[in-house]
Nucleic acid binder design. Sequence first.
DNA 1: TTGCTATTGCGAGCCCTTCGCAATAGGGTG
DNA 2: CACCCTATTGCGAAGGGCTCGCAATAGCAA
Lengths: 134, 134
Amino acid sequence: MAAVREGGLRVTSARRLLIEALWEADQPLSAEELLERLGGRSDLGSVYRNLEALERLGLIRHVHLGHGPGLYARASLGPREYLLCDSCGTHIAVDPSELDEVRDFIRRRFSYEARFSHFPVAGLCPKCAKEREK
Amino acid sequence: MAAVREGGLRVTSARRLLIEALWEADQPLSAEELLERLGGRSDLGSVYRNLEALERLGLIRHVHLGHGPGLYARASLGPREYLLCDSCGTHIAVDPSELDEVRDFIRRRFSYEARFSHFPVAGLCPKCAKEREK
DNA sequence: TTGCTATTGCGAGCCCTTCGCAATAGGGTG
DNA sequence: CACCCTATTGCGAAGGGCTCGCAATAGCAA
């Protein structure tokens, strides 16, 4: 909460509840799921505004795993880069260091600084890849 | 059109116009942009249904470049894997072979078959990466 | 305690996409 | 060529995800 105040934000009850929900979660959650965990003691508009504010302070991140809603988690929740199967929608999370080699290659070849914490590495998981072979 | 009929689809005028628009385009277009090029001689619902049907036949593909609408292009339009700057939204298209090294690495390490034709490689373009450094 | 203003809850609205449905038009059959 | 079956169309409504406008409320500094 100290970080919130230092960021110039008031510590309101909607905000506190949201932060508690985010800090108790062990995986990224959608705005709707977060609202449920608040037991209706806020609303979707406020949840989105607060998520945006907290993200600006760097306290949380959000990721887009495929077509569904964005998923939010505290920034300190690791691992936090994602591989997504764009066939079945499942994903795995890995430590960013696991993808350093990819980042290095992309940087050398294209001067891009690849990050897979907001949009994941997309592809086929082992199961779906095997089914494609047939 | 032969491919359409062989795929079990009727060659209707809405379909023919859509295909012509897709084949004339030199870059992926959104459903809305495609409808514009049809001069109102169809509607968004039909455009989406036809895009889906054509994609099932493997004649076209669609890609999600960031948060906007999905973008559709004929499957034969190359190059067709994408690097997206998730800061400024610009992207570049590269030949899939350019990313073989990434694919190999991901396959060895995670048994995933990476594909960047539907969801791109995300990161920071050179310009945005430079600005971040400051 | 007061007063300023950030924040809330609410509803309306936006964007992208899908669905239901009655009317239409491909295209195989005779 | 006329017929019929049904795939497809155009339309409007609706759904999911998110943003905005606004009056009422509640932090919090003085």
